[in-house]
Computed example of a mutant assay.
Amino acid sequence: MTLHPLNPALARTFVPPVMEARRWLDGITFPPERPLINVSQAAPVDPPPEGLRRAVAEAALNDPAAHLYGPVLGMGALRDELAAQLAGLYGGEISGAQVAITQGCNQAFCATLATLAGPGDEVIVPTPWYFNHKMWLDMASVKAVPLPAGPGLIPEPERAAGLITERTRAIVLISPNNPGGAEYPAEVVRAFYTLCRDRGIALIVDETYRDFDGRDGAAHDLFQEPDWDRTFIHLYSFSKAYRLTGHRVGALVTSRARIAEVEKFLDTVAICPNQLGQIGALWGMQNLAQWVAGERAEILARRAAMVAGLKRLEGWTTLGCGAYFAYVAHPSAEPAPVFARRLVREAGVLLLPGTMFMPDEDVSGQRQCRIAFANVDTAGIAELMARLAQLTP
């Protein structure tokens, strides 16, 4: 049935890709000895550690304020803790007043863009892109200008410079990248910062997966700029590091002046972020550094298993691998969406085709797939490789 009236900006964007892929499972059963391997979504499937769960449970039982509206910009203690830990990691001056806590990192992105761009404006987004970023830009009637990534799926500042117009409001980077897994070198991030500063536009860096970066230490030095907040906007998610996906806790870090504008958006959309989730995130930041380090080590071991396994797969090419993701070229002559659906039926594997991360006019997505391997242990990765090896291209 066609809806009338329907906002054309909403109609313009596509069906949520993860939900679309899940519908491919309808009517298919998987035998117990060969269960589905679901590598379609990057989200922890296990609950948080017991200590964090106890902190949330105790607040739910004994803290009446945990069930009431909280500050629109989030708990002061969590804002201050994130600012302090960011300053400790990256250097530079960061205050809690420059932090807004959001209902997940997707909302941090939406709130940020609401302060930057309106209908007819443009935002440069490297491809393959994170589909929810593209969806929000569509719904806001902001043009997503694709920036095809270079070798190793690293975007090139020189190429981005040629895409900037009088309507450009920002460049968006994700590092470690979703969907490509690439970790952007510090000098590349710095070059993008310089470009954006000189051209008077914002640089948004989504660091949802920074806790699983394969490099030690800070991934960039942008916070050390004395006026970093005039150009640089940092996004973060507590969901991956502390297994809080269902609690929806994210953050953005920017200037005090922009935070005041962000508050308008957040008050209108959600009034306040999830109180219990914030309590869990704060407890995690204060108590789980060693545990998170162990989680990082496990993800890096799975990454190594993916790299080694894909290297042995005939016809498959690894384009990028890091954090939660491997982005690959598949060996089939079939378009990626057709091949991905056949993988469900014949191999019991659910992954996402590259077309979900590319503009329609970019045919390279037809040859590509994303594998979200963080939910599969090394034994599961070995089984995944075995099934892919048995499949006829």
Rank of each mutant, 00 (worst) to 15 (best):
T168D: 02
R169Y: 12
A170I: 08
L173E: 07
L173T: 03
I174T: 10
S175Y: 08
S175L: 02
S175G: 06
P176S: 07
P176C: 10
N178V: 02
N178I: 05
P179H: 02
G180Y: 13
A182G: 04
E183W: 00
Y184N: 04
Y184E: 03
P185R: 01
P185S: 02
A186Q: 12
A186P: 11
A186N: 13
A186W: 09
E187R: 11
V188T: 14
R190I: 06
A191K: 07
A191D: 11
A191N: 09
A191L: 13
F192R: 05
Y193T: 03
T194F: 05
T194I: 14
T194E: 10
C196E: 02
C196F: 09
D198K: 08
R199F: 05
G200D: 09
G200W: 01
I201Q: 10
I201D: 01
I201N: 11
A202F: 07
A202L: 04
L203Q: 11
L203W: 10
L203G: 06
I204S: 01
I204C: 02
I204K: 02
V205Q: 05
D206G: 03
D206L: 05
D206M: 07
D206P: 02
E207T: 13
E207R: 10
E207P: 05
T208I: 00
Y209M: 12
Y209V: 10
Y209H: 00
R210W: 15
D213N: 13
D216K: 04
G217H: 13
A218W: 15
A218Y: 15
A219R: 09
A219P: 00
H220N: 14
D221P: 14
L222H: 02
L222Y: 05
L222E: 08
L222F: 04
F223K: 11
F223C: 09
Q224S: 11
E225R: 12
E225K: 10
P226E: 10
P226C: 12
D227V: 15
R230A: 15
R230L: 14
R230T: 15
F232S: 12
I233W: 09
H234N: 06
H234F: 15
H234D: 01
L235T: 05
Y236A: 11
F238H: 11
F238S: 14
F238E: 11
F238D: 10
